[in-house]
Design a protein around this nucleic acid. Structure first.
Length: 534
RNA sequence: GGUCCCGUGGUGAAGUUGGAGUUCACGCCGCCCUGUCAAGGCGGAGGUCGCGGGUUCGAGUCCCGUCGGGACCGCCA
């Protein structure tokens, strides 16, 4: 080394010129990308010295407190893991664009500043300087705009759009997230699924170098009934088992009054630890079940000779015991979990327990994409109005086979609405939209929205449809989630360059921060005193 | 809004029935050595145990509160 530089340390920025040559025998390091070569006759210039970083810039930092990693995100991103993730992200974005372009979709950018539309997710508001007291909202999604683009004759629109929702953050939710947003005119549901599938497959291919098999489909009802979730993770079995008939004549009160009884068999061979759960773990399962809305959880341990060990065993007849074991194909050592409730509650509760117990880590197992189709048009009854609530949003086209029941049996009506699910993560959803004003009125009526209400709340949206709106439908899926799964990450923060913490702050910039009173003055905003703490 | 978990030198951890800021690894600083590449040897510095209060003769340890981080429920039409 020819240089007057005294030493060089980690993270210093240096420029080295010299001769590259093969390493002498015995000094080759196969573990390094550059392990076969070395530089000699070097001239080294220190371009910038560096303080020692707060954590090692390598895989060891995976264990460092995430708050510290976020505070020094620019160092965290130097690490191979983050470099890899951000590069996968770029490839996915690029592949999606390519797939949409090939299909003749037109990329259109839509506004960030728009009117507040309080339906749906809580919005971020932006005060107007020119009209103090008035506010813009940041888009929860470009839904409004893309449907207007259909009216406007952009018959295949797409955008990789940033969406903002002021709702509590999770491992798979950030305030800001990216969606492939698309809308098409003159299409069927299958046309939309095909177009989006092409983009997803292209993205997966770009990220992983292998083409996933064609995306399978499952109806919403089957997904709920078999997996207890509208976003089923198909990487593992443990399907819910129908037990309502088994206990049709039972004297056990909790079962006798229930509309639906479902069971989950925790197989001792596959999940020995969970199947052998002790009292505290069983209590935790029960708490979880209650948290999810069940009145309780019945656990039954299957002992040697298929004897049943359970607090409720004494209430079950021999016939019921035999039928239960038969129906659940239970073996010694298994743990059986039963929920008796409304069908949807039984399914959902056991679906959560199924995930808690059986779900493999994100980076494990195959990639199981699935279209969940035929979502119900309405889900649940609004406690205040006593009217059905939209399952997705009030603009979904009802399933043509069910339209005749819209007034007579609304809760049984399916929608032309669909979700895309990957390994138990909801990637996104879409629907065929209502383009016929009369149909829209019928749906609104079911929701308890009068024509006047509709005009007042959605007029700016519905008015354009009077000028010749083509039949249309679309979809949007979250690319952060897709990239996270393809990168094997449990958390979308790992695939976002500068994410927020769960409380919505940024440890690096300290956002959100108070602002200068002068700024508030200009916006005509006065702050309330902070809420009193008792 | 709620439930649960975590917080100990720069980083990661251990810390026993409550008994001196004790320990380990990495990093950092200095010296030595060196065909090394997450090197090796010797020495050294570095901590308000998140913060506040309480119990106690005595608190990293127990209790209450609070702040920060995380997982989840609600929420996300």
């Amino acid at each position: 080394m020819v240089s007057d530089v005294k030493d060089v340390r980690n993270e210093w920025v240096v420029q080295i010129t010299g001769k590259v040559q093969a390493r002498p025998e015995g000094t080759v390091n196969a573990n390094l990308p550059t392990g076969g070569i070395e530089m000699v006759e070097c001239q080294l210039t220190v371009l910038n010295a560096a303080e020692s970083p707060p954590f090692p810039i390598d895989a060891r930092a995976d264990d460092v407190d995430e708050g510290v990693r976020l505070k020094f995100r620019y160092l965290d991103i130097r690490r191979e893991r983050m470099q890899k993730n951000l590069r996968i992200r770029a490839k996915v974005n690029s592949a999606i664009r390519g797939a949409m372009e090939v299909q003749n979709f037109v990329e259109v950018e839509t506004p960030f500043l728009m009117p507040s539309t309080p339906e749906g997710a809580r919005e971020f508001l932006v005060p107007s300087r020119k009209e103090p007291g008035s506010f813009y909202a940041l888009p929860q999604s470009p839904q409004l705009w893309k449907q207007l683009l259909m009216v406007a004759g952009i018959d295949r629109y797409y955008q990789i759009a940033r969406c903002l929702r002021d709702e509590d953050l999770r491992a798979d939710r950030q305030y800001e997230f990216m969606q492939l947003d698309a809308e098409m005119s003159f299409v069927t549901k299958d046309d939309v699924l095909a177009a989006i599938s092409q983009a997803v497959v292209a993205a997966a291919e770009a990220a992983l170098g292998q083409t996933p098999p064609p995306i399978e489909q499952i109806t919403w009802h089957d997904a709920m009934n078999r997996f207890g979730s509208d976003k089923p993770d198909l990487r593992f079995g443990m399907e819910l088992i129908e037990l309502t008939d088994v206990f049709a004549a039972t004297e056990f009160k909790a079962f006798a009054t229930a509309k639906s009884i479902k069971g989950l068999r925790v197989d001792a061979a596959t999940y020995p630890e969970a199947a052998a759960s002790g009292r505290s773990k069983l209590d935790a399962f029960t708490d979880r079940a209650k948290q999810m809305g069940a009145k309780g959880l019945v656990w039954i341990k299957v002992g040697d000779d298929l004897a049943l060990d359970s607090p409720v065993a004494k209430f079950l007849s021999d016939t019921e015991r035999a039928a239960l074991l038969q129906q659940m194909q239970a073996k010694s050592g298994d743990l059986l979990l039963l929920v008796a409730d409304e069908w949807s509650t039984s399914c959902e509760v056991l679906g959560h327990l199924r995930n808690d117990i059986g779900r493999p880590p994100v980076h494990e197992g195959p990639y199981r994409y699935v279209w969940v189709i035929d979502f119900p048009l309405f889900v649940g009854i609004n406690a205040t109005t006593g009217k059905p609530q939209p399952g997705h949003h009030p603009f979904c086209q009802p399933h043509p086979d069910d339209i005749e029941r819209l007034e007579t049996d609304p809760m049984s009506v399916r929608a032309l609405a669909y979700d895309l699910v990957l390994n138990g993560w909801e990637l996104g959803s879409g629907s065929i939209r209502i383009h016929d004003p009369e149909m829209q009125r019928r749906v609104f009526r079911q929701l308890g929205i009068s024509d006047e209400d509709a005009d007042r709340r959605f007029g700016f949206f519905l008015q354009p449809f009077k000028y010749g709106a083509p039949p249309h439908g679309g979809f949007a899926f979250g690319t952060d989630r897709l990239v996270a799964i393809l990168a094997g990450e449990e958390n979308i923060r790992e695939v976002i360059a500068f994410p927020k913490t769960q409380s919505g702050s940024d440890p690096m910039t300290n956002a959100p921060t108070p602002v200068d009173p002068a700024q508030l003055n200009e916006l005509g905003i006065r702050l309330l005193p902070p809420p009193a703490k008792s």
